[in-house]
Simulated scan of single mutants.
Amino acid sequence: MATPLTITPATRHDGTSLLTLAGEIDLSNSEKLARALEGAPGAVVVDLTAVDYLDSAGLNVLFAHAERIELIAPSMLRPILTVSGLADLSTVHAPPEAGPAT
Rank of each mutant, 00 (worst) to 15 (best):
G42C: 02
L21G: 11
D47G: 11
A94Y: 09
S30P: 03
P41E: 00
V92Y: 12
L18N: 14
L81H: 02
I69H: 14
A36I: 06
A22S: 15
L77T: 06
L62H: 05
I69G: 12
T102V: 15
A94M: 08
T6R: 15
T49K: 12
L48Q: 00
F63K: 02
P100N: 04
A2C: 03
A10T: 10
T91G: 13
H65R: 06
A43W: 12
G85P: 03
P96D: 08
L86M: 09
L89K: 12
G58Y: 10
L59P: 08
V61M: 01
S17H: 12
P4E: 09
G58N: 07
L18R: 15
V46D: 15
D14E: 04
F63P: 04
L89V: 09
D14M: 06
A98D: 14
I25H: 08
A98H: 13
N60M: 05
L86R: 05
E70H: 14
R12Y: 09
L48R: 04
A98E: 15
P9W: 06
M76K: 15
H13M: 11
L27F: 10
A22L: 10
L54S: 03
E38Y: 06
N29E: 06
V61L: 00
I80L: 06
A73H: 02
P74I: 13
A57V: 03
T102K: 13
S28K: 01
L77C: 11
L37Y: 04
G42N: 00
A73Y: 04
T16A: 12
D47E: 10
L5M: 00
S75L: 11
S90R: 06
A94F: 06
E67H: 14
D14F: 02
I25E: 03
A87S: 09
S84K: 07
L18E: 14
L33C: 01
L33E: 00
S30L: 05
S28Y: 07
P74K: 14
L59S: 08
S75M: 11
